[in-house]
């Protein structure tokens, strides 16, 4: 019997952000994709299914927000009054930010299912799903839930340049093949760092691993994103910055150096996902 998650029926495109390796920037890529899409006028939702380490609330400066219950389901946290950017994460359901969620597999599976079934997104152009590292319970659950949906465009794979990371990312690609997620492309994050003192670019985590992987596996390569401490700073200080300048994170992000890079990546993803 086919059962489709009701909450996703009003979503035009679903895109997953995956990586076998942790800490490569899945959440930061998800955030930047969401901000770029939102700046282009799309209605965007972000679903964080990293249950034991949810980072999305912090990335959007929404750590104190709570999810509300309505008759049609959970109402995601609205970034601002326009409702063009909505966020859902387990982080919003915890009482204290330091609390750990120590759950075994079946409970995580149930939570992911609930996220897909009960969240009332409304009409969305894009739903970005941020995932935990690995290929385990959360991933199996999300793949099972999405398997009958016809609005799943595919997955964006994030890696860092080192071989150690690329090795784990290969596993994630093999996972995508097994569950029939189309791979929209590979992003190489943390690719080089430009010294603010002398403008010399150092490849802290070497470079080129993502491009080589894409070429080897004949997958689209979306580009490399350098390490930019100003983006990190923007995320960490966004609440004060928003108060000072009364601009939203989307506006502030547009001034970031990374915006240009993500604009290109996003456009490529949009072309691929509407094809």
């Amino acid at each position: 019997m086919e059962k489709r998650p009701k909450s996703l029926e009003t979503v035009k495109h679903v895109i997953l952000v995956l990586s076998g390796k942790g800490g490569v920037g899945k959440s930061s890529v998800t955030t930047q994709l969401a901000l770029t899409l939102s700046s282009q006028g799309y209605r965007v939702g972000v679903l964080d299914i990293d249950l034991t380490g949810p980072s999305i609330p912090r990335m959007f400066g929404l750590e104190d927000s709570k999810v509300h219950q309505s008759h049609s389901g959970w109402v995601p946290v609205q970034y601002d009054a326009s409702g063009n950017l909505q966020v859902m994460s387990l982080g919003f359901l915890l009482n204290d930010r330091g609390n750990s969620v120590v759950w075994r597999g079946p409970k995580k599976t149930a939570m992911v299912k609930q996220f897909l079934a009960d969240v009332h997104w409304g009409n969305l152009d894009y739903l970005l799903i941020d995932t935990p590292p690995g290929t385990s319970d959360e991933h199996i659950a999300i793949a099972e839930e999405l398997r009958h949906m016809n609005n799943v465009d595919g997955a964006v794979i994030v890696t860092t340049p080192q071989l150690v990371s690329v090795a784990d990312v290969r596993k994630e690609i093999s996972f995508c093949e097994k569950v029939n997620f189309k791979i929209l492309g590979i992003v190489e994050n943390m690719s080089g760092f430009v010294c603010p003192h002398c403008a010399e670019c150092t490849n802290i985590f070497s470079s080129g691993g993502g491009a080589a992987l894409a070429e080897q596996l004949k997958l689209p390569y979306l580009g490399n994103v350098p390490i930019d401490p100003t983006f990190n700073e923007l995320v960490e200080n966004q609440i004060e910055l928003r108060k000072e300048t009364s601009q939203t994170l989307v506006d502030l992000y547009k001034k970031c150096n990374l915006y240009v890079i993500f604009e290109r990546i996003t456009n490529e993803i949009i072309t691929k996902s509407s094809a």
Partner: peptide, 18 residues
């Protein structure tokens, strides 16, 4: 922290804002 191999200037790549 990261020390640039070129100019030995130190930069905080992942800033400890908190």
């Amino acid at each position: 922290g990261f020390v640039c191999p070129n100019c030995h200037g130190e930069s905080k790549i992942f800033k400890p804002t908190t």
